[in-house]
């Protein structure tokens, strides 16, 4: 609840940054060869409060755009938590044609619409580009009787209700979709799966460490510190390929013979009605920042999977993902 307090304060900040930004980069606007460049401070909107994975992405992209000189009039991250990104999406939607607004979104944008929680559809926005995938990893407590992915599968096959999962912040998240996929692959009854939602991924993680929940499904970002300290153990990753770092020794579900690949993609959308040259500007900007070695190093360090798509590709990708989500979530709505 408290994080909501931070939101509207940022809006006020935009105006003050505008002044500062203009003073700091006097010549940059014209230095860009593109025919359009943001003449107002760039506002990177995100539908969660400070601290979550989406918020981190927004801060990263804002920092890289700034360092790359793509925000000549300044930039700011603006947190608009509430209603599962609904408040932030409504905000972006209410500023058609304003190309200085970018929003970082994930799969919740699709599932909220599919589950009937939000009337806002992905098709109303201008897709800008796909950044990367965050992986969904399955982990158990250090003392859990479940030691390997195979243990988990055996238990689920025997009795789908014998394992409890933490799916972080609710129905329709990628965490939840991963569990649904697993149930489907091992042939367990989806309606018997015990999926528990918490206020934050950290709450789910601590409940798993304390032995109250059997399996936690979330991102390496939330899990790594606890795996490092020996409180949790990874059992399998829902990614297409193995990644490095702490996850190097962790098998993917695919290696184990179960086709569970759930990319928690992060992409950028903008308000509706952008001009082609504005879309081209952001296409170029995103391509440039994601091509830097710093960006790649950051992905590597945070166990993120590179997944770059242009604005055109992102549009098609969103459509195919929407279809896939509809099939999975459709089976649980009544």
């Amino acid at each position: 609840m408290t994080s909501t307090f931070a939101i509207t304060r940022r809006k006020a900040l935009v105006s003050s940054l505008a002044v500062a930004g203009l003073a700091a980069f006097p010549g940059l606007g014209s230095a860009q060869s593109s025919s359009w460049a943001p003449d107002k401070p760039v506002e990177v909107v995100v539908g969660v409060g400070p601290g979550g994975a989406n918020d981190r992405t927004a801060r990263d992209i804002e920092r890289f755009l700034k360092d790359g000189g793509f925000t000549p009039a300044g930039s700011v991250v603006s947190n608009k938590p509430g209603g599962g990104h609904a408040v932030a999406l409504a905000y972006t939607l209410a500023h058609p044609g304003e190309a200085n607004i970018l929003q970082v979104v994930g799969g919740v944008m699709l599932s909220n619409n599919i589950l009937g929680r939000s009337p806002i559809s992905f098709a109303q926005f201008t897709p800008i580009g796909t950044l990367f995938d965050e992986q969904m990893v399955f982990a158990v407590g250090a003392n859990s009787p479940i030691k390997t992915a195979q243990d988990l599968v055996d238990k689920l096959k025997q009795d789908p209700a014998s394992v409890s999962f933490s799916i972080s912040t609710g129905i329709g998240t990628t965490n939840h979709i991963s569990v649904l996929q697993l149930a489907k692959q091992v042939g367990a009854d989806i309606k018997k799966i015990k999926a528990v939602s918490f206020n934050s991924s950290t709450e789910g993680v601590t409940a798993t460490i304390g032995g109250h929940i059997d399996v936690v499904v979330t991102t390496p970002f939330a899990l790594n510190p606890f795996v490092e300290s020996g409180d949790l153990k990874y059992i399998a990753a829902a990614s297409a390929e193995r990644s490095g770092g702490l996850l190097a020794q962790v098998p993917t579900w695919r290696e184990l013979g179960y086709d569970i690949v759930v990319p928690a993609w992060r992409l950028i959308v903008a308000p509706p009605d952008l001009k082609p040259e504005q879309i081209a500007y952001w296409d170029k900007a995103i391509a440039a920042v994601t091509d830097t070695s710093e960006w790649k190093a950051m992905l590597e360090k945070e166990s993120l999977v590179p997944h770059r798509l242009t604005s055109v590709e992102t549009k098609a990708y969103l459509e195919s993902e929407d279809k896939r989500y509809r099939e999975l979530l459709g089976s649980i709505s009544q």
Binding site: L115, I171, K191, K194, A195, V196, S333, Q334
Partner: peptide, 8 residues
């Protein structure tokens, strides 16, 4: 209140 046939 809309209902989903899942979990809980």
């Amino acid at each position: 209140i809309p209902l989903l046939g899942f979990g809980d």
